[in-house]
Design a protein around this nucleic acid. Structure first.
Ligand code: SF4
Ligand code: SF4
Lengths: 136, 136
DNA sequence: TGCCTTCAAGACCATTTTTATCCTTTTTAG
DNA sequence: CTAAAAAGGATAAAAATGGTCTTGAAGGCA
């Protein structure tokens, strides 16, 4: 239950590997994909999305590639995961605009909200910088 | 991300409604399904599974139905959820025998383990009795 | 003994999500 | 101009989800 998909796992691994590059350095998709052991075309989609969201910059043409658009310390694990997996919620009723007519009276609802809040707290507290720095 | 499936949601709702019956009372599947607003045939599968796991008793024939096999206070939300959704884990690498050759060195792994442990702690601390009693 | 009720078990199925791959286009450096 | 590299869109196999249907088995009752 509640497992990250491959896409989520790849997204995290991918951006960590990108963050390990010397700062400002532009890295090739093919290199990151190989290092992180991610299917290149799949990672391409993920990075395209990250670029749109402003996490990373992309450069086309010869000498192109990807680099972080802001310091790794300013990107949290939560942001990365939510970017690809959507809002973190253990049940429908705890998402923004989550629909269940029972929510008001439901006790289980409160349990899921606690799970959600604790999870968010953990993921908010971890930055890509930390992850990239440790266990290099 | 990490959402309970319908099956999980139905399982929780179903067993709570069963726990609201007078103790020892045998309830009809059709009644529980209607009260909890769950497709009856789907709930049947869930309850069959619960019966196998010893959470509930089932009785066939006229006057048959389902009842809890042990006090609601001895059934935790975690047990119910894991019964239908499998082990609670935010990533493959934190399941029993979860496989990722990186686990040892990986820092993200530790984050997922923390998420898992916090979630388990919450779900272990909630019993079906509490859920059935409150917000009747 | 039959008949009716109720759960058991397994087959079946439509839809959605996951996990990619492929191809064409655009951008850019040199 | 050309080669390199990402962008964007179409396609698709495989798996998971969310059920339904049919048949069978067990139990109560006239
Ligand atoms: S936990 Fe309660 S509020 Fe949330 S979806 Fe289930 S019934 Fe609705
Ligand atoms: S978080 Fe680390 S250990 Fe877990 S699956 Fe990802 S790479 Fe492997």
């Amino acid at each position: 239950m509640m497992e990250l998909t491959r896409k989520g796992e790849y997204a995290v691994r991918g951006i960590i590997h990108l963050a390990r590059q010397p700062y400002g350095n532009v890295a090739l998709l093919s290199d990151i994909a190989e290092e992180a052991e991610i299917p290149q075309t799949f990672l391409a989609k993920i990075f395209q999305n990250f670029a749109k969201l402003g996490f990373i910059n992309s450069y086309r043409g010869t000498g192109g590639g990807f680099s972080l658009a802001r310091p790794a310390s300013a990107i949290t694990l939560r942001q990365v995961v939510e970017a690809v997996e959507g809002p973190i919620a253990p049940n429908r009723c705890v998402t923004q605009g989550g629909e269940c007519d029972r929510s008001a009276a439901c006790v289980v609802h409160d349990v899921w909200r606690r799970v959600q809040l604790q999870t968010l707290e953990i993921l908010d507290g971890v930055t890509i910088e930390e992850l990239a720095r440790k266990s290099k």
